[in-house]
Structure formats: structure tokens, C-alpha cells
């Protein structure tokens, strides 16, 4: 187990290196510069700015500096917002995104699994059709439309929730739903089909033949096996929630990390791009890693490589 974790950490570092390098070159390939949007810019000042930020150096020197910065997590100051360090920006806005993300994931997983189980139990009956309709709507309606519709009806017309902003739990409900619904639909479909598959399997029939009640069969036997594909989906789900939040944070005017991520790219704010990319990459790599470990805990047939065979 320990050996396996070390090995995985090694691969993660390698993956991070590749991501950082690709980001660097893509960043440079894109036309424009951090200061291109400032008007009436005397060339002398631009020259001075470039020098301050090391943008005049040959690319390999810049690349070397950049790698050292990335390795030490010292991303420097934003090129756009004077006197604000990238690390501060992340530290300030990440908790907001994290709260929103966790809420969205809880909604997606909890309601998704619930809908899926209901669908499977009442296969081809009314609750199944109802749950399937909700799931398909969730998958097919884009989050920005959902967000605006909810803002219009639930916030503006009925005044149940605040329209936008970030000022406590009640502000997070609508955006969390806007992010979660597509994933909830997907998880519901996934759970439904894998529950149905398990319900037709011999061991579930055997569990019924043992005289266990309906719900005991579901919770103790079929659900655990049916959830394996859902656990696999947790990795992509995290990525989806993170990227999905860019738009939703924008619509609800939430001061999260997504805003900085998108703005830094349009602004060619090299230091912030680098900081947010490295930060998100680490989160994603760790999620995938945790999912793999979770998988081996849920399914005893899966042995992690490097683990001793018992």
C-alpha cells in the first residue's frame, strides 16, 4: 500500500510537470501580452514593465524561472492587479469555490443515487418515468439556462432566494443546484442502469431466497455493487464541478476562483494563469488518486498494485 502511494505520488509529479510545461508554451503561443489592454502606452514604459516581469529574457530562461516558481509555489504578483500576489488571490477566493463545489457534489451524489435507486426499484412504473424525466432534463439543460431560470422564478418572482451575491448559506443554494443538476442526472442514469443490472444478478436473487426484506436486499447487496461505476465517475465529477463553476460563479456574481481563472486568461496575466492552473491540477490529480484508493476499499476484488497478496 505504502509503495503504491509513493509510486502514485511520483506519477502525479510527472503529470504536474507536463501540465505546467504545456501551459507555459500555450500561454506564450497565444498572441497579446499582459499589458496589451492598457491604452496609450509609451514604448519606454512597456519596455520597463517587460523588464520588471522578466518578459524580455529568452524563453528558456523564462521557462527555468517559471519552473522554479512553480516548484516553490511562489507564483509572484499578478501582472494585472498591482500589489496582489497570486497566492493571496487563491487563498481568498478558493474557500468560496470549495464551499460551492462541496455543496454541489453532495447534491449531485445524494440526489443522483436516490433517483437512480427509486428508478430501478420501480422499473418501468411511474416513479421510474418521473425520475428519468428529471434526470434527462438535468443532463440536457445547460447550467447557465438553469441558473437564469432559477434566478427569474425562484429569486425574482417568488423571492425565495437572493438573486446573486455571496453572503451566507442561503446565497449558495441556487448556484449549487445550477452546478449540480447535470451531474445529478448523469449519476441517476448511471445508478439506475447499474442497479438494474445487479437486480438481475444471481446473488441478489439468492439474497431474496434467503428471506431478506426488499430494502435489506437493496441496501446490503445490490446498492454497494451498483455504486462502483458511480465512484469511478467521482473523478470526472470533481473536474466538472470545478469547470462548471466558472460560468455559474459569473452569473451569480460569486467571488470564487473560477472568475480569476477565466479573467487571468483573457488578461494574459501569466502569473495568475500559472498559479490557478497548478492549483487546479493538484486538486484534480489528488481526487483521481483518492477515488482509486476508495475503489479498492469498496470492492475487495481490486488490489492496488504493489500491495501484498494475502
Amino acid at each position: 500500500m505504502f509503495k503504491y502511494i509513493l509510486k502514485r505520488l511520483g506519477y502525479m509529479l510527472l503529470a504536474l510537470f507536463v501540465i505546467v510545461t504545456v501551459t507555459f508554451f500555450l500561454m506564450r503561443l497565444a498572441p497579446g501580452s499582459p499589458f496589451a489592454s492598457e491604452r496609450n502606452f509609451p514604448p519606454a514604459i512597456e519596455e520597463k514593465l517587460n523588464e520588471t516581469y522578466g518578459l524580455n529574457n529568452p524563453w528558456y530562461i523564462q521557462y527555468k524561472d517559471y519552473l522554479i516558481d512553480a516548484a516553490t509555489f511562489n507564483f509572484g504578483e499578478s501582472m494585472k492587479y498591482k500589489a496582489r500576489s497570486t497566492n493571496d488571490m487563491i487563498a481568498e477566493s478558493f474557500p468560496v469555490s470549495l464551499t460551492l463545489g462541496i455543496e454541489a457534489m453532495l447534491i449531485a451524489i445524494g440526489m443522483g443515487v436516490l433517483l437512480g435507486v427509486i428508478s430501478a426499484l420501480y422499473h418501468n412504473k411511474f416513479p421510474d418515468y418521473a425520475a428519468t424525466i428529471i434526470a434527462v432534463l438535468g443532463i440536457s439543460v445547460p447550467s447557465f439556462i438553469l441558473a437564469s431560470v432559477m434566478q427569474y422564478f425562484l429569486a425574482y418572482k417568488l423571492d425565495l432566494f437572493p438573486t446573486a451575491g455571496w453572503n451566507g448559506f442561503i446565497y449558495s443554494i441556487l448556484p449549487a443546484f445550477a452546478i449540480a443538476l447535470a451531474h445529478m442526472g448523469f449519476i441517476a442514469k448511471l445508478t439506475r442502469s447499474s442497479m438494474l443490472e445487479q437486480s438481475n444478478s444471481d446473488y441478489v436473487k439468492m439474497a431474496r431466497a434467503k428471506g431478506l426484506g426488499k430494502w435489506k436486499v437493496v441496501f446490503k447487496h445490490s446498492l454497494r455493487n451498483a455504486l462502483l461505476p458511480v465512484v469511478t465517475y467521482l473523478g470526472p465529477l470533481t473536474a466538472g464541478v470545478v469547470t462548471g463553476s466558472f460560468i455559474v460563479e459569473q452569473i451569480f456574481a460569486i467571488p470564487g476562483l473560477g472568475k480569476h481563472f477565466v479573467q487571468s486568461i483573457t488578461n494574459r496575466d501569466y502569473t495568475v494563469i500559472m498559479g490557478t492552473t497548478v492549483f487546479y491540477s493538484i486538486i484534480l490529480l489528488f481526487t483521481v488518486f483518492i477515488v482509486d484508493i476508495l475503489y479498492s476499499i469498496i470492492d475487495p476484488r481490486i488490489k492496488l498494485k504493489g500491495e501484498k497478496k494475502s
Partner: peptide, 24 residues
């Protein structure tokens, strides 16, 4: 019926490879 199943009447299934729950 569930009071009778497994208690008064029980069943041995055909394929032992699939009739046990793999995660229990």
C-alpha cells in the same frame, strides 16, 4: 413469504461463481 424463504425452504443456485455477493 420472506419468513418462509431461507427458513422453511431454501435454495442452492446453479452457478456458485455468481450467486455470492462479491463485496460481502
Amino acid at each position: 413469504m420472506s419468513k418462509i424463504r431461507g427458513n422453511d425452504i431454501s435454495m442452492i443456485f446453479q452457478d456458485p461463481m455468481t450467486s455470492l455477493n462479491p463485496t460481502m
